[in-house]
Deep mutational scan, measured.
Amino acid sequence: MEVRTIKVFTTVDNINLHTQVVDMSMTYGQQFGPTYLDGADVTKIKPHNSHEGKTFYVLPNDDTLRVEAFEYYHTTDPSFLGRYMSALNHTKKWKYPQVNGLTSIKWADNNCYLATALLTLQQIELKFNPPALQDAYYRARAGEAANFCALILAYCNKTVGELGDVRETMSYLFQHANLDSCKRVLNVVCKTCGQQQTTLKGVEAVMYMGTLSYEQFKKGVQIPCTCGKQATKYLVQQESPFVMMSAPPAQYELKHGTFTCASEYTGNYQCGHYKHITSKETLYCIDGALLTKSSEYKGPITDVFYKENSYTTTIK
Rank of each mutant, 00 (worst) to 15 (best):
T292V: 10
N111V: 03
Q230W: 11
P130S: 08
Q30E: 12
Q251A: 14
A247D: 02
N100L: 07
E281D: 15
Y214I: 11
T198R: 10
G288S: 01
D63R: 09
K158Y: 04
G101T: 06
R167E: 03
A108W: 05
Q230S: 12
Q122V: 03
A40C: 10
I315T: 08
T266K: 11
E204T: 07
D303A: 00
G202A: 05
C149H: 02
N110Q: 03
Q98A: 07
P130N: 06
G210E: 00
K280P: 00
V206C: 10
D287R: 01
T35S: 08
A132K: 06
F242D: 01
A145S: 05
V206S: 01
N178R: 09
A69G: 07
N147W: 08
E264F: 01
N100V: 09
G220M: 02
E144G: 09
A150W: 02
A136K: 04
T55Q: 08
T199P: 04
T302N: 00
S310C: 10
R66A: 15
S171Q: 11
V3C: 14
Q195I: 15
N89M: 09
Y84A: 05
R139S: 13
L290Y: 14
A108Q: 08
H256T: 09
T5N: 09
E52H: 12
N49G: 08
K183R: 11
C190M: 02
I6N: 06
K7S: 12
H256L: 13
K158C: 01
N14G: 13
V243R: 00
F242V: 01
T43F: 11
E239A: 07
T282V: 11
V99F: 15
P248I: 11
L37T: 11
Q123K: 03
G267L: 04
R139M: 12
Y84P: 01
T232L: 12
T11I: 06
T312A: 15
Q197F: 10
I286P: 00
G272R: 01
T27L: 09
S246R: 01
Q270M: 08
H18Q: 10
K46E: 13
E144V: 08
T19W: 11
K183V: 11
P241H: 07
L59H: 15
S240V: 01
F128W: 15
K316M: 07
D41E: 07
E215Y: 06
P34V: 08
E68R: 10
D38M: 13
L212V: 14
F80H: 05
K158I: 04
M85A: 06
M24I: 12
K127S: 13
V166N: 01
N157L: 03
Y73C: 04
Y73E: 02
Y155F: 05
A262W: 00
Q270L: 09
A115Q: 07
T64W: 12
T266M: 09
G257Q: 07
T313V: 10
V8N: 05
P248H: 07
C182F: 05
F242T: 01
H176C: 08
I152P: 00
T103G: 03
A146N: 03
D165H: 03
A231C: 14
L291Y: 09
Q98L: 09
F70S: 15
H256M: 12
A115N: 05
T5Y: 13
N100G: 07
P47Y: 05
C156S: 13
A145M: 04
A115R: 00
C182G: 04
D13N: 04
V42S: 10
H276W: 09
R184L: 01
E125Y: 06
I6R: 08
P300D: 15
A87F: 05
H51E: 12
C190P: 03
L126Q: 02
A231S: 07
M207R: 06
E264A: 10
A289D: 11
Y311D: 07
E125L: 04
K218W: 06
N16P: 05
F9P: 05
Y28S: 04
Q197C: 08
G164T: 03
V160P: 08
S86N: 11
E204H: 14
S240K: 01
F217E: 02
K183E: 07
S295P: 10
E125W: 01
G29T: 05
D180F: 12
T282K: 10
Y306C: 01
Q98S: 10
N157R: 11
K158W: 04
V243L: 07
D63S: 14
S25K: 08
N157F: 10
G299Y: 00
D180Y: 08
Q222P: 14
G161Y: 03
K280H: 08
Y265P: 03
E125G: 09
A205C: 05
L121F: 11
A132N: 04
E168C: 07
A87Q: 06
Y269D: 08
T120E: 05
Q270W: 14
P131C: 02
Q197D: 07
P78H: 13
H90D: 08
A177F: 02
D41P: 13
Y297K: 03
H18E: 13
L186T: 10
T120Y: 01
K106M: 07
Y72F: 09
D109L: 05
D109I: 01
A154Y: 04
V236G: 04
A146P: 06
A154V: 06
G53H: 15
V22R: 04
S279I: 00
D23Y: 13
M85S: 05
E308Y: 04
